[in-house]
Design a protein around this nucleic acid. Structure first.
Length: 419
DNA sequence: TCTGGGGTCCTAGGACCC
DNA sequence: TCTGGGGTCCTAGGACCC
Protein backbone atom coordinates (compact mmCIF):
# COMPACT_ATOMS: atom_id res chain seq x y z
CA UNK A 1 0.00 0.00 0.00
CA UNK A 2 1.36 3.39 -1.01
CA UNK A 3 0.57 6.59 0.82
CA UNK A 4 1.06 9.95 -0.87
CA UNK A 5 1.44 12.89 1.49
CA UNK A 6 1.07 16.24 -0.24
CA UNK A 7 1.29 19.64 1.43
CA UNK A 8 -1.69 21.90 0.77
CA UNK A 9 -0.82 25.13 -1.07
CA UNK A 10 2.70 24.62 0.24
CA UNK A 11 4.40 28.00 -0.25
CA UNK A 12 1.37 29.89 1.02
CA UNK A 13 1.16 27.53 4.00
CA UNK A 14 4.83 28.23 4.84
CA UNK A 15 4.13 31.97 4.90
CA UNK A 16 1.12 31.40 7.12
CA UNK A 17 3.07 29.44 9.73
CA UNK A 18 5.04 32.56 10.63
CA UNK A 19 2.31 35.08 9.96
CA UNK A 20 -0.97 33.81 11.42
CA UNK A 21 -2.75 36.96 10.27
CA UNK A 22 -2.76 35.39 6.80
CA UNK A 23 -5.07 32.62 7.98
CA UNK A 24 -8.43 32.73 6.14
CA UNK A 25 -7.18 35.48 3.81
CA UNK A 26 -6.49 35.26 0.09
CA UNK A 27 -2.70 34.83 -0.19
CA UNK A 28 -0.49 34.28 -3.24
CA UNK A 29 3.22 33.58 -3.68
CA UNK A 30 4.96 34.84 -6.82
CA UNK A 31 7.64 33.29 -9.05
CA UNK A 32 11.13 34.75 -9.36
CA UNK A 33 11.20 38.43 -10.35
CA UNK A 34 7.68 38.63 -8.90
CA UNK A 35 6.50 37.53 -12.34
CA UNK A 36 3.48 35.32 -11.88
CA UNK A 37 1.44 33.46 -9.26
CA UNK A 38 2.80 30.02 -8.33
CA UNK A 39 0.97 29.23 -5.09
CA UNK A 40 -2.52 30.25 -3.93
CA UNK A 41 -4.51 29.89 -0.75
CA UNK A 42 -8.01 28.45 -1.08
CA UNK A 43 -9.41 31.97 -0.65
CA UNK A 44 -7.26 33.15 -3.57
CA UNK A 45 -8.50 30.23 -5.67
CA UNK A 46 -12.05 31.22 -4.77
CA UNK A 47 -11.34 34.67 -6.24
CA UNK A 48 -10.60 32.83 -9.48
CA UNK A 49 -6.92 33.76 -9.45
CA UNK A 50 -5.28 31.31 -11.84
CA UNK A 51 -1.97 29.52 -11.51
CA UNK A 52 0.50 31.54 -13.60
CA UNK A 53 -1.56 34.74 -13.43
CA UNK A 54 0.69 37.72 -14.16
CA UNK A 55 1.36 39.94 -11.19
CA UNK A 56 1.78 43.19 -13.11
CA UNK A 57 -1.56 42.65 -14.83
CA UNK A 58 -3.42 41.77 -11.63
CA UNK A 59 -1.78 44.15 -9.17
CA UNK A 60 -4.82 46.42 -8.91
CA UNK A 61 -7.23 43.55 -8.58
CA UNK A 62 -5.12 42.05 -5.77
CA UNK A 63 -5.08 45.37 -3.94
CA UNK A 64 -8.81 45.81 -4.34
CA UNK A 65 -9.62 42.36 -2.97
CA UNK A 66 -7.08 42.44 -0.16
CA UNK A 67 -4.90 39.66 -1.58
CA UNK A 68 -1.66 39.29 0.40
CA UNK A 69 1.28 38.92 -1.98
CA UNK A 70 4.71 37.38 -1.33
CA UNK A 71 7.88 36.85 -3.34
CA UNK A 72 9.07 33.26 -3.23
CA UNK A 73 11.28 32.64 -0.23
CA UNK A 74 13.05 29.39 -1.13
CA UNK A 75 15.33 29.15 1.89
CA UNK A 76 12.21 29.19 4.08
CA UNK A 77 10.29 26.68 1.95
CA UNK A 78 13.24 24.29 1.71
CA UNK A 79 13.68 24.31 5.46
CA UNK A 80 9.97 23.78 6.11
CA UNK A 81 10.03 20.93 3.62
CA UNK A 82 12.84 19.27 5.56
CA UNK A 83 10.81 19.56 8.75
CA UNK A 84 7.76 17.94 7.17
CA UNK A 85 9.86 15.11 5.69
CA UNK A 86 11.56 14.40 8.99
CA UNK A 87 8.17 13.99 10.67
CA UNK A 88 7.10 11.59 7.93
CA UNK A 89 10.25 9.52 8.40
CA UNK A 90 9.31 8.91 12.02
CA UNK A 91 6.08 7.29 10.89
CA UNK A 92 7.40 5.29 7.97
CA UNK A 93 11.04 4.40 7.21
CA UNK A 94 10.30 3.70 3.55
CA UNK A 95 9.94 7.16 2.12
CA UNK A 96 10.50 8.59 -1.34
CA UNK A 97 10.75 12.37 -1.26
CA UNK A 98 9.21 13.20 -4.59
CA UNK A 99 9.33 16.99 -4.56
CA UNK A 100 9.61 19.91 -2.18
CA UNK A 101 6.03 19.41 -1.03
CA UNK A 102 5.20 15.75 -1.41
CA UNK A 103 6.44 12.29 -0.49
CA UNK A 104 5.39 8.72 -1.11
CA UNK A 105 5.40 6.34 1.84
CA UNK A 106 5.52 2.59 1.28
CA UNK A 107 3.44 1.04 4.03
CA UNK A 108 4.71 -2.51 3.43
CA UNK A 109 6.37 -2.63 6.85
CA UNK A 110 3.58 -0.86 8.72
CA UNK A 111 1.44 -3.25 10.72
CA UNK A 112 -1.62 -1.32 11.75
CA UNK A 113 -5.17 -2.58 11.65
CA UNK A 114 -6.42 0.57 9.93
CA UNK A 115 -3.94 2.22 7.58
CA UNK A 116 -6.28 5.10 6.80
CA UNK A 117 -6.43 5.87 10.50
CA UNK A 118 -2.63 5.73 10.63
CA UNK A 119 -2.44 8.13 7.67
CA UNK A 120 -4.76 10.53 9.47
CA UNK A 121 -2.51 10.39 12.49
CA UNK A 122 0.45 11.31 10.26
CA UNK A 123 -1.50 14.21 8.82
CA UNK A 124 -2.41 15.56 12.24
CA UNK A 125 1.09 15.19 13.61
CA UNK A 126 2.63 17.05 10.65
CA UNK A 127 0.16 19.87 11.20
CA UNK A 128 0.83 20.03 14.91
CA UNK A 129 4.61 19.78 14.74
CA UNK A 130 5.30 21.94 11.68
CA UNK A 131 2.15 24.00 11.12
CA UNK A 132 1.82 22.71 7.56
CA UNK A 133 -1.53 21.21 6.49
CA UNK A 134 -1.24 18.10 4.31
CA UNK A 135 -3.54 15.71 2.47
CA UNK A 136 -2.99 11.96 2.22
CA UNK A 137 -4.03 9.40 -0.35
CA UNK A 138 -3.71 5.62 -0.04
CA UNK A 139 -3.81 3.01 -2.79
CA UNK A 140 -2.05 0.00 -4.23
CA UNK A 141 -0.12 1.99 -6.89
CA UNK A 142 1.51 5.41 -6.91
CA UNK A 143 -0.79 6.71 -9.63
CA UNK A 144 -3.88 5.62 -7.72
CA UNK A 145 -2.45 7.08 -4.50
CA UNK A 146 -2.13 10.39 -6.36
CA UNK A 147 -5.74 10.13 -7.44
CA UNK A 148 -6.83 9.28 -3.88
CA UNK A 149 -4.93 12.30 -2.62
CA UNK A 150 -6.65 14.57 -5.12
CA UNK A 151 -10.00 13.14 -4.07
CA UNK A 152 -9.18 13.84 -0.42
CA UNK A 153 -8.30 17.44 -1.26
CA UNK A 154 -11.44 18.06 -3.28
CA UNK A 155 -13.98 16.41 -1.01
CA UNK A 156 -14.40 18.15 2.28
CA UNK A 157 -16.02 15.16 4.00
CA UNK A 158 -12.77 13.15 3.62
CA UNK A 159 -11.05 15.50 6.04
CA UNK A 160 -7.89 15.37 3.99
CA UNK A 161 -7.47 11.59 3.82
CA UNK A 162 -8.79 9.00 1.41
CA UNK A 163 -8.06 5.36 0.67
CA UNK A 164 -8.70 3.39 -2.49
CA UNK A 165 -8.99 -0.29 -1.55
CA UNK A 166 -10.79 -3.43 -2.65
CA UNK A 167 -14.12 -2.18 -1.37
CA UNK A 168 -13.87 1.14 -3.26
CA UNK A 169 -16.16 1.54 -6.25
CA UNK A 170 -13.19 2.35 -8.44
CA UNK A 171 -15.20 2.65 -11.65
CA UNK A 172 -17.47 5.27 -10.14
CA UNK A 173 -14.47 7.13 -8.74
CA UNK A 174 -12.49 7.15 -12.00
CA UNK A 175 -15.51 8.16 -14.04
CA UNK A 176 -15.61 11.39 -12.00
CA UNK A 177 -11.97 12.25 -12.74
CA UNK A 178 -10.77 14.01 -15.88
CA UNK A 179 -7.74 12.40 -17.56
CA UNK A 180 -5.69 15.58 -17.07
CA UNK A 181 -5.97 15.12 -13.30
CA UNK A 182 -4.21 11.78 -13.57
CA UNK A 183 -0.49 11.81 -12.79
CA UNK A 184 1.39 11.46 -16.08
CA UNK A 185 -1.26 12.98 -18.32
CA UNK A 186 -0.38 16.47 -19.47
CA UNK A 187 -1.74 18.89 -22.04
CA UNK A 188 -0.61 17.08 -25.17
CA UNK A 189 -1.76 13.67 -24.04
CA UNK A 190 -5.07 15.16 -22.98
CA UNK A 191 -5.76 16.51 -26.45
CA UNK A 192 -4.88 13.16 -28.03
CA UNK A 193 -7.24 11.44 -25.59
CA UNK A 194 -10.06 13.93 -26.12
CA UNK A 195 -9.74 13.58 -29.90
CA UNK A 196 -10.29 9.86 -29.44
CA UNK A 197 -13.28 10.22 -27.18
CA UNK A 198 -11.44 9.29 -24.00
CA UNK A 199 -12.98 11.74 -21.59
CA UNK A 200 -12.56 10.31 -18.11
CA UNK A 201 -9.94 8.44 -16.12
CA UNK A 202 -12.21 5.40 -16.44
CA UNK A 203 -12.14 5.60 -20.25
CA UNK A 204 -8.35 5.89 -20.00
CA UNK A 205 -8.13 2.84 -17.78
CA UNK A 206 -10.22 0.85 -20.25
CA UNK A 207 -8.36 1.95 -23.40
CA UNK A 208 -6.46 -0.66 -25.39
CA UNK A 209 -2.82 -1.25 -24.54
CA UNK A 210 -1.73 -1.17 -28.18
CA UNK A 211 -3.43 2.16 -28.85
CA UNK A 212 -2.03 3.73 -25.67
CA UNK A 213 1.52 2.53 -26.38
CA UNK A 214 1.35 3.86 -29.92
CA UNK A 215 -0.02 7.29 -29.00
CA UNK A 216 1.21 7.93 -25.45
CA UNK A 217 4.44 5.89 -25.52
CA UNK A 218 5.47 3.43 -22.85
CA UNK A 219 5.06 6.13 -20.16
CA UNK A 220 1.36 6.42 -20.95
CA UNK A 221 0.98 2.67 -20.88
CA UNK A 222 2.53 2.53 -17.42
CA UNK A 223 0.03 5.11 -16.24
CA UNK A 224 -2.85 3.02 -17.58
CA UNK A 225 -1.53 -0.15 -15.96
CA UNK A 226 -1.18 1.68 -12.67
CA UNK A 227 -4.80 2.79 -12.93
CA UNK A 228 -5.70 -0.89 -13.24
CA UNK A 229 -3.89 -1.57 -9.97
CA UNK A 230 -0.71 -3.00 -11.44
CA UNK A 231 2.19 -1.21 -9.83
CA UNK A 232 4.88 -0.36 -12.40
CA UNK A 233 6.33 2.98 -11.34
CA UNK A 234 9.23 2.20 -9.06
CA UNK A 235 9.39 3.35 -5.48
CA UNK A 236 12.78 5.04 -5.14
CA UNK A 237 13.96 5.51 -1.60
CA UNK A 238 17.44 6.70 -2.35
CA UNK A 239 17.49 9.56 -4.79
CA UNK A 240 20.00 8.81 -7.51
CA UNK A 241 22.56 11.50 -8.28
CA UNK A 242 21.43 14.10 -10.80
CA UNK A 243 22.42 13.49 -14.40
CA UNK A 244 22.11 17.13 -15.27
CA UNK A 245 22.62 20.15 -13.03
CA UNK A 246 21.96 23.72 -13.98
CA UNK A 247 21.14 27.21 -12.86
CA UNK A 248 19.23 29.78 -14.87
CA UNK A 249 17.42 33.02 -14.15
CA UNK A 250 15.41 35.61 -15.98
CA UNK A 251 16.63 39.16 -15.54
CA UNK A 252 14.24 41.69 -14.02
CA UNK A 253 14.91 43.95 -17.03
CA UNK A 254 16.84 43.47 -20.23
CA UNK A 255 20.61 43.06 -20.07
CA UNK A 256 22.69 44.17 -23.06
CA UNK A 257 26.30 44.27 -21.88
CA UNK A 258 28.63 41.30 -22.13
CA UNK A 259 30.30 42.34 -18.86
CA UNK A 260 27.01 41.96 -16.98
CA UNK A 261 26.29 38.61 -18.60
CA UNK A 262 29.75 37.48 -17.52
CA UNK A 263 28.90 38.34 -13.94
CA UNK A 264 25.65 36.41 -14.14
CA UNK A 265 27.35 33.40 -15.74
CA UNK A 266 29.91 33.39 -12.95
CA UNK A 267 27.21 33.50 -10.27
CA UNK A 268 25.13 30.75 -11.90
CA UNK A 269 28.13 28.48 -12.43
CA UNK A 270 29.08 28.96 -8.77
CA UNK A 271 25.58 27.97 -7.66
CA UNK A 272 25.47 24.94 -9.97
CA UNK A 273 29.00 23.85 -9.00
CA UNK A 274 27.97 23.88 -5.37
CA UNK A 275 25.11 21.50 -6.18
CA UNK A 276 27.56 19.35 -8.14
CA UNK A 277 29.94 19.07 -5.17
CA UNK A 278 27.11 18.39 -2.75
CA UNK A 279 26.36 15.15 -4.58
CA UNK A 280 30.08 14.34 -4.88
CA UNK A 281 30.10 14.64 -8.64
CA UNK A 282 32.21 16.07 -11.41
CA UNK A 283 31.13 17.42 -14.76
CA UNK A 284 32.73 16.98 -18.15
CA UNK A 285 30.52 19.44 -20.00
CA UNK A 286 29.77 23.09 -19.35
CA UNK A 287 26.85 24.50 -21.34
CA UNK A 288 25.50 28.04 -21.56
CA UNK A 289 22.29 29.36 -23.09
CA UNK A 290 21.08 32.84 -23.73
CA UNK A 291 17.65 34.19 -24.76
CA UNK A 292 15.98 37.48 -25.56
CA UNK A 293 12.44 38.16 -24.37
CA UNK A 294 10.09 36.20 -26.61
CA UNK A 295 7.06 38.09 -25.26
CA UNK A 296 7.89 41.33 -27.07
CA UNK A 297 8.33 42.36 -30.71
CA UNK A 298 11.98 43.39 -30.55
CA UNK A 299 14.57 41.41 -32.54
CA UNK A 300 14.91 37.90 -31.15
CA UNK A 301 18.01 35.83 -30.62
CA UNK A 302 18.67 32.66 -28.70
CA UNK A 303 21.56 30.28 -28.71
CA UNK A 304 23.30 27.64 -26.72
CA UNK A 305 26.71 26.04 -26.80
CA UNK A 306 29.02 24.08 -24.58
CA UNK A 307 32.51 22.93 -23.95
CA UNK A 308 33.82 19.46 -23.15
CA UNK A 309 36.44 19.56 -20.42
CA UNK A 310 39.69 17.66 -20.82
CA UNK A 311 39.22 16.21 -17.36
CA UNK A 312 36.01 16.21 -15.27
CA UNK A 313 35.93 18.89 -12.61
CA UNK A 314 33.89 20.54 -9.89
CA UNK A 315 36.36 23.37 -9.32
CA UNK A 316 34.40 26.60 -9.57
CA UNK A 317 37.13 28.85 -11.07
CA UNK A 318 37.81 26.32 -13.81
CA UNK A 319 34.10 25.90 -14.62
CA UNK A 320 33.55 29.66 -14.59
CA UNK A 321 36.42 30.08 -17.04
CA UNK A 322 34.94 27.52 -19.38
CA UNK A 323 31.47 29.08 -19.18
CA UNK A 324 32.74 32.57 -19.95
CA UNK A 325 34.54 31.19 -23.00
CA UNK A 326 31.27 29.67 -24.20
CA UNK A 327 29.31 32.83 -23.44
CA UNK A 328 31.68 34.85 -25.64
CA UNK A 329 31.04 32.46 -28.50
CA UNK A 330 27.25 32.80 -28.42
CA UNK A 331 27.00 36.45 -27.38
CA UNK A 332 25.81 38.85 -30.11
CA UNK A 333 26.08 42.57 -29.62
CA UNK A 334 22.88 44.59 -29.92
CA UNK A 335 20.27 42.29 -28.41
CA UNK A 336 18.35 42.80 -25.17
CA UNK A 337 18.81 39.60 -23.18
CA UNK A 338 16.12 38.33 -20.85
CA UNK A 339 17.44 35.04 -19.61
CA UNK A 340 20.72 33.27 -19.15
CA UNK A 341 21.47 29.79 -17.91
CA UNK A 342 24.32 27.37 -17.39
CA UNK A 343 24.13 23.60 -17.20
CA UNK A 344 26.44 20.67 -16.59
CA UNK A 345 25.98 17.27 -18.15
CA UNK A 346 28.15 14.16 -18.53
CA UNK A 347 28.23 14.05 -14.77
CA UNK A 348 30.36 11.42 -13.09
CA UNK A 349 31.06 10.38 -9.55
CA UNK A 350 34.12 11.65 -7.71
CA UNK A 351 34.79 8.11 -6.49
CA UNK A 352 35.20 6.79 -10.00
CA UNK A 353 37.54 9.58 -10.98
CA UNK A 354 40.31 8.61 -13.34
CA UNK A 355 43.38 10.76 -13.31
CA UNK A 356 44.91 11.84 -16.56
CA UNK A 357 48.29 13.38 -17.26
CA UNK A 358 46.83 16.86 -17.64
CA UNK A 359 46.90 17.74 -13.97
CA UNK A 360 48.91 16.56 -11.06
CA UNK A 361 47.09 14.78 -8.29
CA UNK A 362 48.58 17.25 -5.88
CA UNK A 363 47.01 20.17 -7.71
CA UNK A 364 43.66 18.38 -7.81
CA UNK A 365 43.73 17.75 -4.07
CA UNK A 366 44.46 21.40 -3.36
CA UNK A 367 41.50 22.46 -5.50
CA UNK A 368 39.19 20.03 -3.71
CA UNK A 369 40.18 21.19 -0.28
CA UNK A 370 39.82 24.83 -1.32
CA UNK A 371 36.27 24.20 -2.57
CA UNK A 372 35.52 22.29 0.62
CA UNK A 373 36.54 25.27 2.69
CA UNK A 374 34.55 27.70 0.53
CA UNK A 375 31.40 25.56 0.83
CA UNK A 376 31.79 25.26 4.59
CA UNK A 377 32.30 29.00 5.06
CA UNK A 378 29.35 29.84 2.85
CA UNK A 379 27.06 27.48 4.69
CA UNK A 380 27.94 29.00 8.04
CA UNK A 381 28.30 32.65 7.03
CA UNK A 382 25.59 32.80 4.36
CA UNK A 383 25.44 32.15 0.62
CA UNK A 384 28.12 33.98 -1.33
CA UNK A 385 29.99 35.19 1.75
CA UNK A 386 32.94 33.99 -0.29
CA UNK A 387 32.63 34.14 -4.06
CA UNK A 388 34.56 34.42 -7.29
CA UNK A 389 35.34 38.04 -8.12
CA UNK A 390 33.88 37.74 -11.61
CA UNK A 391 30.37 37.63 -10.08
CA UNK A 392 30.69 41.39 -9.61
CA UNK A 393 29.62 43.56 -6.72
CA UNK A 394 26.56 45.58 -7.67
CA UNK A 395 24.86 42.77 -9.65
CA UNK A 396 22.16 44.89 -11.27
CA UNK A 397 20.95 41.77 -13.11
CA UNK A 398 19.87 40.09 -9.87
CA UNK A 399 16.22 39.12 -9.64
CA UNK A 400 13.56 41.29 -8.17
CA UNK A 401 11.98 40.12 -4.90
CA UNK A 402 10.08 43.09 -3.54
CA UNK A 403 7.67 41.18 -1.32
CA UNK A 404 10.06 38.87 0.47
CA UNK A 405 9.24 37.58 3.95
CA UNK A 406 12.00 36.79 6.45
CA UNK A 407 14.04 33.60 6.35
CA UNK A 408 12.58 32.85 9.76
CA UNK A 409 14.20 29.46 10.25
CA UNK A 410 17.62 29.76 8.63
CA UNK A 411 19.01 33.18 9.62
CA UNK A 412 19.71 34.29 13.18
CA UNK A 413 19.06 37.88 12.17
CA UNK A 414 15.61 37.05 10.80
CA UNK A 415 14.18 34.98 13.66
CA UNK A 416 10.53 35.65 14.42
CA UNK A 417 10.13 38.01 17.37
CA UNK A 418 7.76 37.13 20.20
CA UNK A 419 6.44 40.16 22.01
C1' DT B 1 9.20 47.78 -17.03
C1' DC B 2 6.75 43.32 -16.31
C1' DT B 3 5.56 36.28 -18.32
C1' DG B 4 9.75 30.83 -12.94
C1' DG B 5 13.17 27.23 -12.35
C1' DG B 6 14.86 22.55 -12.19
C1' DG B 7 14.54 18.21 -13.41
C1' DT B 8 13.48 13.10 -15.86
C1' DC B 9 12.32 9.94 -19.46
C1' DC B 10 11.18 8.44 -24.23
C1' DT B 11 11.58 8.30 -29.25
C1' DA B 12 12.96 9.07 -33.96
C1' DG B 13 16.50 9.63 -36.84
C1' DG B 14 21.27 9.99 -38.14
C1' DA B 15 26.02 8.37 -37.86
C1' DC B 16 28.67 4.67 -37.59
C1' DC B 17 30.21 -0.29 -37.28
C1' DC B 18 30.97 -4.95 -39.41
C1' DT C 1 16.38 -3.02 -64.33
C1' DC C 2 19.12 -4.77 -60.29
C1' DT C 3 22.75 -0.91 -54.61
C1' DG C 4 22.25 -5.76 -47.71
C1' DG C 5 21.19 -6.56 -43.15
C1' DG C 6 21.66 -6.06 -38.43
C1' DG C 7 23.07 -3.70 -34.88
C1' DT C 8 24.73 0.27 -31.34
C1' DC C 9 25.28 4.85 -29.84
C1' DC C 10 24.25 9.65 -29.68
C1' DT C 11 21.39 13.70 -29.85
C1' DA C 12 17.59 16.89 -30.34
C1' DG C 13 13.15 17.53 -29.42
C1' DG C 14 9.09 16.68 -27.05
C1' DA C 15 6.49 14.88 -23.48
C1' DC C 16 5.87 14.83 -18.45
C1' DC C 17 6.47 16.24 -13.27
C1' DC C 18 6.58 19.74 -9.20
Amino acid sequence: MFCLVDCNNFYVSCERVFNPKLEKKPVVVLSNNDGCVISRSNQAKALNIKMGALYFKNKDFFKERGVCVYSSNYPLYADMSNRVMSVLKRFCPDIEIYSIDEAFLDFKTIYHKDLLLYAKEIKETVKQWTGIPVSVGLASTKTLAKAANLYAKKNFECQGAFEINDSTDIEALLSEISPEDIWGIGKQYLSILKANNINTALDLRNASDVWIKKNLTISGLRTVWELRGRSCIAFEMVSSPKKQIGCSRSFPSAVTKLSELEEAVSAYVSAAAKKLRRQNSLTSYVGVFLLTNCFNDRPQYSNRAGLCLVEPSSYTPELVGAAIKVLKVIFREGYRYKKLGVFFKDISSLENFQYTFSKSQNNRNRQNSLMNTVDKLNSSLGTDALKVASQGISQSWRMRQNKLSFRFTTRWSELPVVK
